[in-house]
Simulated assay, not measured.
Amino acid sequence: MYEFISGKITKATPAYVVIENNGMGYLINISLYTYEAVKDKKETLLYIHENIREDAYLLYGFSDIREREIFQMLISVSGIGANTARMMLSSMSPEELQLAISTENVNQIKSIKGIGQKTAQRVIVELKDKIGKVAEEQKIALLRDNTNAEEALSALVMLGFAKAPSQKVVDKILKENPDSKVEDIIKLALKML
Protein backbone atom coordinates (compact mmCIF):
# COMPACT_ATOMS: atom_id res chain seq x y z
CA MET A 1 0.00 0.00 0.00
CA TYR A 2 1.34 3.42 -0.95
CA GLU A 3 0.92 6.29 1.52
CA PHE A 4 2.21 9.03 -0.77
CA ILE A 5 4.32 9.58 -3.88
CA SER A 6 6.50 12.63 -4.29
CA GLY A 7 8.57 13.71 -7.22
CA LYS A 8 8.80 15.82 -10.35
CA ILE A 9 5.58 16.52 -12.23
CA THR A 10 6.20 15.56 -15.87
CA LYS A 11 2.59 16.06 -16.99
CA ALA A 12 -0.42 17.66 -15.32
CA THR A 13 -3.98 17.62 -16.66
CA PRO A 14 -7.28 18.25 -14.84
CA ALA A 15 -7.85 14.47 -14.76
CA TYR A 16 -4.40 13.08 -13.93
CA VAL A 17 -0.75 13.87 -13.27
CA VAL A 18 2.38 11.92 -14.07
CA ILE A 19 4.94 12.06 -11.28
CA GLU A 20 8.50 10.89 -11.89
CA ASN A 21 10.07 9.26 -8.83
CA ASN A 22 13.39 7.39 -9.03
CA GLY A 23 13.17 6.88 -12.77
CA MET A 24 9.56 5.64 -12.72
CA GLY A 25 6.58 7.63 -13.95
CA TYR A 26 3.37 7.16 -11.95
CA LEU A 27 0.08 8.06 -13.63
CA ILE A 28 -2.12 9.29 -10.81
CA ASN A 29 -5.81 10.18 -11.22
CA ILE A 30 -6.71 13.44 -9.48
CA SER A 31 -9.69 15.71 -8.83
CA LEU A 32 -9.93 19.31 -10.03
CA TYR A 33 -9.36 20.35 -6.40
CA THR A 34 -5.96 18.62 -6.40
CA TYR A 35 -5.20 19.88 -9.92
CA GLU A 36 -5.65 23.47 -8.71
CA ALA A 37 -3.16 22.77 -5.91
CA VAL A 38 -0.45 21.24 -8.16
CA LYS A 39 -0.89 22.78 -11.63
CA ASP A 40 1.82 25.43 -11.23
CA LYS A 41 4.34 23.29 -9.36
CA LYS A 42 7.36 21.48 -10.72
CA GLU A 43 7.43 18.97 -7.84
CA THR A 44 4.72 17.73 -5.50
CA LEU A 45 3.68 15.17 -2.94
CA LEU A 46 0.35 13.41 -3.40
CA TYR A 47 -1.37 11.17 -0.84
CA ILE A 48 -2.38 7.97 -2.59
CA HIS A 49 -5.37 5.65 -2.66
CA GLU A 50 -4.82 2.41 -4.57
CA ASN A 51 -7.75 0.95 -6.46
CA ILE A 52 -6.97 -2.62 -7.46
CA ARG A 53 -9.52 -4.29 -9.70
CA GLU A 54 -9.50 -7.42 -11.82
CA ASP A 55 -8.87 -5.44 -14.98
CA ALA A 56 -6.92 -2.42 -13.70
CA TYR A 57 -4.49 -1.12 -11.09
CA LEU A 58 -5.27 2.56 -10.56
CA LEU A 59 -3.76 5.23 -8.33
CA TYR A 60 -5.75 8.21 -7.07
CA GLY A 61 -3.83 11.17 -5.67
CA PHE A 62 -4.82 13.92 -3.28
CA SER A 63 -3.08 17.15 -2.32
CA ASP A 64 -4.08 16.73 1.33
CA ILE A 65 -5.04 13.93 3.67
CA ARG A 66 -8.52 15.36 4.36
CA GLU A 67 -9.47 15.04 0.69
CA ARG A 68 -8.27 11.42 0.65
CA GLU A 69 -10.29 10.62 3.79
CA ILE A 70 -13.46 12.03 2.22
CA PHE A 71 -12.74 10.11 -1.02
CA GLN A 72 -12.38 6.87 0.95
CA MET A 73 -15.63 7.56 2.80
CA LEU A 74 -17.42 8.24 -0.49
CA ILE A 75 -16.29 4.98 -2.11
CA SER A 76 -17.52 3.08 0.96
CA VAL A 77 -21.08 4.11 0.00
CA SER A 78 -22.91 1.51 -2.07
CA GLY A 79 -23.19 2.66 -5.69
CA ILE A 80 -20.29 5.12 -5.59
CA GLY A 81 -17.10 4.06 -7.30
CA ALA A 82 -13.73 5.74 -7.45
CA ASN A 83 -14.54 7.78 -10.57
CA THR A 84 -17.85 9.01 -9.15
CA ALA A 85 -16.11 10.00 -5.89
CA ARG A 86 -13.46 11.83 -7.91
CA MET A 87 -16.22 13.62 -9.87
CA MET A 88 -17.82 14.67 -6.57
CA LEU A 89 -14.51 16.07 -5.31
CA SER A 90 -13.99 17.84 -8.64
CA SER A 91 -17.41 19.48 -8.42
CA MET A 92 -17.09 20.62 -4.80
CA SER A 93 -14.16 21.26 -2.47
CA PRO A 94 -13.77 18.79 0.41
CA GLU A 95 -15.07 21.47 2.80
CA GLU A 96 -18.16 22.16 0.66
CA LEU A 97 -18.89 18.44 0.33
CA GLN A 98 -18.43 17.94 4.06
CA LEU A 99 -20.83 20.80 4.76
CA ALA A 100 -23.42 19.56 2.24
CA ILE A 101 -23.40 16.09 3.83
CA SER A 102 -23.46 17.29 7.44
CA THR A 103 -26.31 19.76 6.72
CA GLU A 104 -28.20 17.13 4.66
CA ASN A 105 -28.26 19.35 1.55
CA VAL A 106 -29.59 16.76 -0.94
CA ASN A 107 -30.03 19.33 -3.74
CA GLN A 108 -26.41 20.44 -3.60
CA ILE A 109 -25.13 16.86 -3.75
CA LYS A 110 -27.68 16.00 -6.45
CA SER A 111 -26.39 18.88 -8.59
CA ILE A 112 -23.14 16.91 -9.16
CA LYS A 113 -23.04 15.20 -12.57
CA GLY A 114 -23.92 11.51 -12.24
CA ILE A 115 -25.52 11.81 -8.80
CA GLY A 116 -29.27 11.31 -8.58
CA GLN A 117 -31.74 11.84 -5.76
CA LYS A 118 -31.39 8.32 -4.27
CA THR A 119 -27.60 8.33 -4.41
CA ALA A 120 -27.45 11.78 -2.79
CA GLN A 121 -29.74 10.58 0.02
CA ARG A 122 -27.68 7.39 0.48
CA VAL A 123 -24.47 9.46 0.73
CA ILE A 124 -26.04 11.61 3.44
CA VAL A 125 -27.50 8.68 5.41
CA GLU A 126 -24.29 6.64 5.32
CA LEU A 127 -21.76 9.45 5.83
CA LYS A 128 -23.43 12.09 7.99
CA ASP A 129 -22.11 10.65 11.27
CA LYS A 130 -18.64 9.82 9.86
CA ILE A 131 -18.23 13.27 8.28
CA GLY A 132 -19.38 14.91 11.51
CA LYS A 133 -16.75 13.02 13.53
CA VAL A 134 -13.98 13.96 11.06
CA ALA A 135 -15.03 17.63 11.13
CA GLU A 136 -15.16 17.60 14.95
CA GLU A 137 -11.68 16.01 15.19
CA GLN A 138 -10.28 18.63 12.79
CA LYS A 139 -11.88 21.44 14.81
CA ILE A 140 -10.38 20.06 18.05
CA ALA A 141 -6.98 19.69 16.38
CA LEU A 142 -7.13 23.34 15.28
CA LEU A 143 -8.10 24.39 18.79
CA ARG A 144 -5.17 22.44 20.24
CA ASP A 145 -2.79 24.25 17.87
CA ASN A 146 -3.86 27.44 19.60
CA THR A 147 -0.99 28.78 21.76
CA ASN A 148 -3.49 30.28 24.21
CA ALA A 149 -4.85 26.78 24.79
CA GLU A 150 -1.36 25.42 25.42
CA GLU A 151 -0.52 28.19 27.89
CA ALA A 152 -3.83 27.78 29.74
CA LEU A 153 -3.39 24.02 29.91
CA SER A 154 0.16 24.26 31.30
CA ALA A 155 -1.04 26.81 33.88
CA LEU A 156 -3.84 24.46 35.00
CA VAL A 157 -1.39 21.55 35.29
CA MET A 158 0.98 23.74 37.36
CA LEU A 159 -1.96 24.58 39.63
CA GLY A 160 -2.30 20.85 40.33
CA PHE A 161 -5.08 19.78 37.99
CA ALA A 162 -4.73 16.53 35.99
CA LYS A 163 -3.84 17.06 32.34
CA ALA A 164 -6.57 14.94 30.64
CA PRO A 165 -9.61 16.54 32.34
CA SER A 166 -8.02 19.98 31.98
CA GLN A 167 -7.53 19.37 28.23
CA LYS A 168 -11.22 18.47 27.84
CA VAL A 169 -12.32 21.60 29.68
CA VAL A 170 -9.98 23.84 27.65
CA ASP A 171 -11.23 22.24 24.40
CA LYS A 172 -14.83 22.83 25.46
CA ILE A 173 -14.14 26.48 26.32
CA LEU A 174 -12.37 27.11 23.01
CA LYS A 175 -15.11 25.35 21.07
CA GLU A 176 -17.63 27.84 22.48
CA ASN A 177 -15.28 30.88 22.39
CA PRO A 178 -12.40 30.29 19.92
CA ASP A 179 -10.90 33.78 20.47
CA SER A 180 -10.62 33.50 24.26
CA LYS A 181 -7.55 34.98 25.95
CA VAL A 182 -5.36 32.85 28.22
CA GLU A 183 -6.67 34.51 31.39
CA ASP A 184 -10.30 33.97 30.34
CA ILE A 185 -9.66 30.30 29.54
CA ILE A 186 -8.02 29.74 32.94
CA LYS A 187 -10.83 31.55 34.83
CA LEU A 188 -13.55 29.55 33.08
CA ALA A 189 -11.63 26.29 33.46
CA LEU A 190 -11.21 26.86 37.23
CA LYS A 191 -14.97 27.24 37.53
CA MET A 192 -15.56 24.04 35.56
CA LEU A 193 -12.93 21.81 37.21
Results as ranks from 00 to 15, higher is better:
Y2G: 04
Y2H: 08
F4P: 05
F4C: 02
F4S: 13
I5M: 06
I5R: 02
I5N: 00
K8P: 01
K11S: 13
K11I: 06
V18M: 12
V18I: 15
E20G: 07
E20F: 02
E20C: 02
N22K: 07
N22A: 03
L27P: 01
Y33V: 07
T34Y: 09
T34D: 05
E36R: 15
K39M: 13
D40P: 03
E43H: 13
L45P: 01
L46N: 01
L46I: 03
N51Y: 12
N51A: 12
N51W: 09
R53M: 11
R53L: 14
E54T: 04
E54Q: 13
A56D: 14
A56K: 12
Y57Q: 14
L58C: 00
L58W: 06
L59W: 00
L59T: 03
G61Q: 09
G61I: 02
F62W: 08
S63P: 06
I65V: 12
R66H: 15
E67W: 09
E67C: 11
R68N: 05
R68Y: 05
E69I: 07
E69Y: 11
Q72N: 15
M73T: 08
M73Y: 14
L74Y: 06
I75V: 14
S76V: 03
G79K: 12
G81M: 07
N83L: 13
T84F: 04
A85L: 05
S91D: 07
M92C: 09
M92W: 01
M92N: 04
E95C: 02
L97P: 10
L97A: 13
A100V: 03
I101W: 08
S102M: 15
N105E: 10
Q108G: 05
S111Y: 01
I115Y: 10
I115T: 04
I115R: 02
G116M: 01
K118Q: 06
T119E: 01
T119L: 08
R122L: 08
R122M: 07
E126F: 04
E126W: 05
L127Q: 01
K128H: 04
D129T: 03
K130A: 08
G132M: 13
K139Y: 03
A141N: 11
L143K: 01
L143Q: 04
R144T: 00
N146I: 00
T147G: 06
T147D: 15
E151Y: 00
E151I: 00
L153R: 02
L156E: 10
V157K: 10
M158R: 12
G160S: 04
P165G: 10
S166D: 09
V169K: 15
V170K: 06
K172P: 02
K172W: 06
N177H: 11
K181F: 00
V182G: 01
K187M: 14
A189K: 07
A189L: 06
A189S: 15
A189N: 04
L190Y: 13
L193N: 11
